[in-house]
Design a protein around this nucleic acid. Sequence first.
DNA 1: GCAATAGTTGACTATTTTGCTGGGTTAAGT
DNA 2: ACTTAACCCAGCAAAATAGTCAACTATTGC
Lengths: 157, 157
Amino acid sequence: MRLTTKGRYAVTAMLDLAFHSQIKPVTLTDIAARQTISLSYLEQLFARLRRAGMVKGVRGPGGGYKLCKKASDINIADIIAAVDEALDSTKCGGEVNCQKDQACLTHDLWMGLSEQIRTYLKGITLAELLEKNHVQDVAQRQDQNAHQVIEIHRHHG
Amino acid sequence: MRLTTKGRYAVTAMLDLAFHSQIKPVTLTDIAARQTISLSYLEQLFARLRRAGMVKGVRGPGGGYKLCKKASDINIADIIAAVDEALDSTKCGGEVNCQKDQACLTHDLWMGLSEQIRTYLKGITLAELLEKNHVQDVAQRQDQNAHQVIEIHRHHG
DNA sequence: GCAATAGTTGACTATTTTGCTGGGTTAAGT
DNA sequence: ACTTAACCCAGCAAAATAGTCAACTATTGC
């Protein structure tokens, strides 16, 4: 399991989708605007998410994307796996005898690590994240406001 | 904390170094040959590892690289951090108000995840890895031999 | 001192991934 | 019909990844 910006984009977009598509489908244009991701890049990502059976596209006016499953049934690991797509992980993609003699020293480490991370991310659902974010988002906003007030006081005091 | 092939290369090389530099320094040429990583790429990686105070270069004949600390005092997270070098992690590198209004939806997730992974990797030392690999390496070799014997039997039986 | 070894440095290239632009086609709603 | 928005490409620019080459310096051993 690789961790790059691409996966983060996908998770961000899915989060946005989960949050806004309760009532009607959400257009990629909207997500692009809210999350400042380019529309075309989103199209690429959603093409893969769709192929992975995570989202469904609805054409025509009033269309957009919807989640195929409940947000509580979608985990982060699957999202990342969907967009990262079949990188053979290293020269030793799954195989054990990856190197001539000594068998790729880090094999066990990376397999173990990968598994650990995957397990961790599989345990987190979109729904959980949404909840968590909602709460903390408010908290952050309050903090920010507080800081701003303090800053203003400093500059004008 | 990002996870890419670069970090894996670095860990692989450090593992090799830890394993072979018990007696005398190890040249990058040797590591390059054993781990099939290009010499120049290794040079780049080791330049950073050296600047991070993890390895020490010894010039002249019989020279090479040595670990600065004991293998049991070097953890994987530090190795990866050393070569990955100051990526500001995303547009919201550490800052909280990464986006105009809604504050980067995935912020909490990625910070939490990063921390989780870092913690995990900080808990693994080169020494531990070496030990683990040594044992499993032998095991794998035995397995392989066994499989080969079976294959031969199949083809010639 | 001289030659060989091996680190050190930097500039330069190639490949891949990433992220994006812009063109189109197709399905659905008004 | 017309609009909307998914779908589908072909390509492109920037960045990251991986590697090459060449010059230089410090160290060891003869």
